[in-house]
Deep mutational scan, measured.
Amino acid sequence: NITNLCPFDEVFNATRFASVYAWNRKRISNCVADYSVLYNLAPFFTFKCYGVSPTKLNDLCFTNVYADSFVIRGDEVRQIAPGQTGNIADYNYKLPDDFTGCVIAWNSNKLDSKVSGNYNYLYRLFRKSNLKPFERDISTEIYQAGNKPCNGVAGFNCYFPLRSYSFRPTYGVGHQPYRVVVLSFELLHAPATVCGPKKST
């Protein structure tokens, strides 16, 4: 009989979030998941669920729940959905087409922007091929755009693959930082360890 609440607040209220290319994953298990708490945590810009209804979450049980978190800019949030393409979905964080879970995003301009520009958040701009779903690539190998090998040196047709967002508070919403948490629900042929409040007794 599990009584402890799932530590969603640790994920959502973390002081620092990860850069999207090096997104963070927390496995959540053996706890009571009260998803209604999430609705009250922040004024969400996005709370979209796929393959599951957000209002039914509190009635369900899962084997595992994974919470992935990272920062992107406002106009990239739409890429965090099944079947999307674009720089983020292709080279940084890719959801599977049959994704079961929820994408939660909110504006973090007050936390993640600086007047002089916050350069701490990076994204991958160049990659030889698209990522597979939930693949994480943290390599910093020089990207070869031409025929000549780069031998690890940046220059003509040889690019450092990561680029930094420079978040400034005066930017338009599309270029402001957004914190994203992706909850993916895993149903294996194994005992369910993460249940809503109704199912945990």
Rank of each mutant, 00 (worst) to 15 (best):
F126W: 10
Y93T: 00
I142Q: 05
V52L: 13
L57N: 08
L95I: 13
P177E: 00
L183H: 02
Y123Q: 10
V71F: 01
H175C: 02
K26S: 09
C150I: 00
N107I: 02
F45L: 15
Y21N: 05
R78Q: 12
K128N: 11
D34G: 10
T100L: 15
N87P: 12
P43L: 08
K56S: 12
S139G: 11
F160R: 14
A33G: 10
V52A: 09
V20I: 06
K48S: 08
G51Q: 10
S108F: 01
I28E: 03
K128I: 08
C102G: 03
N92T: 01
A18S: 12
I2M: 13
K132W: 08
A192G: 14
F185G: 09
H175K: 01
R16F: 12
T46K: 14
W106F: 08
Q144C: 04
K110N: 11
K198W: 12
F45V: 15
Y91W: 07
K26T: 14
L122R: 13
F47D: 02
G172K: 00
S69G: 03
N109E: 02
A67H: 04
C158F: 01
T170M: 07
S200G: 14
F156S: 06
P43D: 12
R168S: 01
L111M: 13
N24L: 06
K94S: 06
I72E: 00
A190N: 13
D90E: 08
T170N: 06
K148F: 11
V181Y: 04
A190D: 13
Y143M: 06
A105L: 05
P161K: 04
L162P: 00
R163N: 15
C158Y: 01
I104G: 07
A33T: 09
T100G: 06
Y178C: 09
Y123G: 06
N40A: 12
W23D: 00
V77Q: 05
Q176Y: 01
L41Y: 15
Y165F: 05
I28C: 07
K199I: 13
Y178K: 03
P191T: 12
S113V: 02
A89D: 01
S113N: 02
V103Q: 01
T46V: 13
G172W: 03
N147I: 06
P43E: 11
T46I: 13
L122S: 13
V37A: 14
N40T: 14
N87S: 12
D68T: 04
P133Y: 06
A81P: 00
S113Q: 01
I88V: 09
E10K: 11
A190G: 15
T100V: 14
K94F: 03
F167P: 00
T170S: 07
Y119D: 12
N92R: 02
N40R: 14
F45M: 15
C31N: 06
D98P: 09
R168G: 00
D59R: 12
F8E: 04
I88L: 04
V181F: 04
Y66K: 09
H189V: 11
F126P: 03
V37E: 10
A67Q: 06
E135F: 05
V65S: 07
G172I: 00
R168F: 02
K198P: 13
T201G: 14
S184H: 13
L57M: 09
P96E: 03
P177N: 00
P177W: 02
V71D: 00
I2K: 14
G101T: 02
L38C: 06
F134I: 04
Q84L: 09
T15R: 12
S166Y: 05
I72H: 02
H189C: 08
L38W: 10
I88E: 00
F99H: 03
L111G: 07
D137V: 04
R25V: 02
L183G: 01
D34I: 07
V181E: 00
N109T: 04
P161T: 04
W23E: 00
K114W: 09
V32R: 12
N24E: 15
L122I: 10
F167N: 00
R27S: 10
V180F: 03
Y39K: 15
E186M: 08
N58L: 08
C61W: 08
C150G: 00
T15D: 12
P133R: 04
S164Q: 07
C102V: 05
V20Q: 00
R16E: 15
Q84G: 12
T193I: 10
S139R: 10
N87D: 06
C49S: 03
A105V: 08
R25Y: 03
S164V: 04
Y178H: 12
K199Q: 13
V20Y: 02
G174L: 06
A33I: 15
C6Q: 06
F12S: 05
S129C: 09
R163T: 15
T140H: 12
L131T: 04
V194A: 12
A145S: 08
W23S: 03
A18I: 04
I72L: 10
G86K: 02
T55K: 15
L5P: 15
R168D: 00
K199W: 13
G196R: 11
E76G: 03
K199V: 15
R27Y: 12
V180L: 06
S139A: 10
Y35A: 10
P191N: 14
I88S: 03
S113Y: 02
G172P: 00
R127D: 00
I142H: 05
N30W: 08
N130Y: 10
P7L: 09
P197C: 15
F156A: 10
P133E: 06
A42D: 07
V37N: 12
F160C: 07
A89Y: 04
C61E: 08
A14R: 09
V20D: 00
D137K: 03
A154G: 09
S200I: 15
D34W: 06
G146P: 01
V181G: 02
G196L: 11
C158P: 01
G172F: 01
S113T: 04
R16Y: 14
N130E: 11
D68V: 04
R163P: 10
H189I: 09
R78W: 07
V103E: 00
C158I: 01
P7V: 10
V180M: 07
N109L: 05
K56C: 08
N109S: 05
F8P: 05
S29M: 09
V77K: 05
F99A: 01
S53F: 09
V77L: 13
G152Y: 07
R168W: 01
Y123P: 00
N64A: 15
E76S: 04
T140P: 08
Y21C: 04
Y123W: 11
A42Y: 13
A192E: 13
G117Q: 03
P54C: 07
D98T: 11
E141S: 11
D137R: 03
H175R: 01
N87H: 15
I72D: 00
Q176A: 02
F12G: 05
P54M: 15
S108M: 03
C195V: 08
C6I: 05
Q79P: 00
F167L: 01
R25G: 02
N92H: 03
A18T: 09
K199T: 13
T85V: 11
Y143N: 01
K132Q: 13
A192T: 13
N40H: 13
K198A: 14
V153R: 14
E135M: 07
K148M: 12
N130M: 12
P7M: 10
V77C: 05
P133N: 05
A22V: 06
N107S: 05
R124M: 00
Y159F: 02
C6V: 06
C49M: 04
F156I: 08
R127S: 06
T85Q: 13
Q84F: 06
K132L: 12
F44N: 14
D59Q: 14
D9R: 11
D137G: 03
R25F: 02
T193C: 10
N87F: 15
F185L: 09
P161F: 04
Y93D: 00
T201P: 14
N157M: 02
T140W: 08
C195W: 07
N157C: 01
P54T: 12
S184Q: 11
T140E: 14
F167S: 00
T193F: 11
N30C: 08
A14I: 06
D90Y: 08
A33V: 14
L60Y: 14
